[in-house]
Simulated assay, not measured.
Amino acid sequence: MDFQTYYDLHRLFADYAIAVDSGNWDLWPDFFTDDCSYRLQPRENHERGFPLATLSFESKGMLRDRVYGIKETLFHDPYYQRHVISAPVVRKEEGQRIHCEANYAVFRTKLSQESTVFNVGRYIDVVERTAEGMKFASKLVVYDSEMIPNSIIYPI
């Protein structure tokens, strides 16, 4: 992999974190291809090969529906989140697709409360080179803890 490709991949992860931490949820689906997959799954299920996921979306349209839900229909205590994402590790390249992984930690701050560790784990991603730049074709978010506080509203 050449430097520019790795830089573009690294920038995709950095821009993703900035977007989902900004609270501008309309930005989130644009990081994905039209026929993408986004799944949030506990580590135990992933390691055992169980398909059950906490969240599972199978297209950019489904991501947009989630954004609508976040903004218009889901009732929840608002909070801020902050992602810290490691540099992506490339596992394999296949044509226009890059298979990679990165560790992440998400901190959550509710209004008038301390910041806490909200969710940690790893991303197992397939990134596709497109005419618009790099996009996630598949993002599997494998979180380490079996317990999640309340519910997960915002993208991880």
Rank of each mutant, 00 (worst) to 15 (best):
C100I: 11
D34H: 07
K110L: 03
V126R: 12
G49T: 01
D144F: 01
A53E: 05
M147G: 00
R97T: 11
F31L: 13
D30C: 04
D21W: 04
E93I: 15
F57P: 00
R108A: 07
L40P: 00
V120C: 15
I98Y: 04
S115I: 03
L9F: 14
R108Q: 10
L111T: 10
S138Q: 15
G49C: 02
F75R: 12
L27T: 02
G95R: 15
K92F: 11
V106F: 00
T109G: 03
Q81N: 06
E58K: 15
L55Y: 06
R122M: 15
L63G: 05
K135F: 03
V141A: 04
Y80N: 05
L140R: 09
M134C: 05
F75I: 13
Y123E: 02
V117L: 15
M134R: 01
L74I: 12
D21C: 02
S56V: 04
Q4V: 12
D65I: 08
M147N: 08
S145A: 14
H99G: 04
A17M: 02
A131K: 06
F75E: 14
Q4F: 07
H83L: 11
H76G: 02
Y16I: 01
G49E: 00
W28D: 03
D77N: 10
T73G: 10
R97W: 12
D26M: 12
L74W: 08
V89N: 05
I18S: 12
V142I: 13
T116W: 03
F3D: 08
V90C: 06
I70M: 10
M1L: 08
W28M: 07
I98L: 05
T54D: 05
E93N: 04
F32Q: 06
L140C: 06
D35L: 08
A53S: 15
E94C: 06
M62T: 06
P51Y: 05
M62Y: 07
N119D: 05
L12S: 07
L52T: 00
G61F: 11
Q81T: 11
G133K: 01
Q4L: 14
R66V: 06
M134Y: 10
Q4R: 12
A14I: 06
Q4E: 09
V106W: 00
R48P: 00
Q4M: 11
S112Y: 11
V127A: 11
F50N: 08
S112L: 11
E44R: 00
D35E: 15
K60T: 12
T33I: 09
A131Y: 04
D77R: 15
A14T: 11
V20Q: 10
E94Q: 13
Y123V: 01
R64T: 13
I153T: 13
D65G: 11
R66T: 09
N24Q: 10
D65A: 14
F50I: 08
C36H: 03
C36V: 08
W25G: 02
F107M: 13
Q113E: 15
D125I: 14
N24E: 09
F3T: 12
S151T: 06
V106I: 14
T130D: 07
Y38S: 08
V67L: 10
A17Y: 04
A19I: 01
L111Y: 10
S56E: 12
Y6A: 10
I153D: 02
L74M: 12
E44W: 00
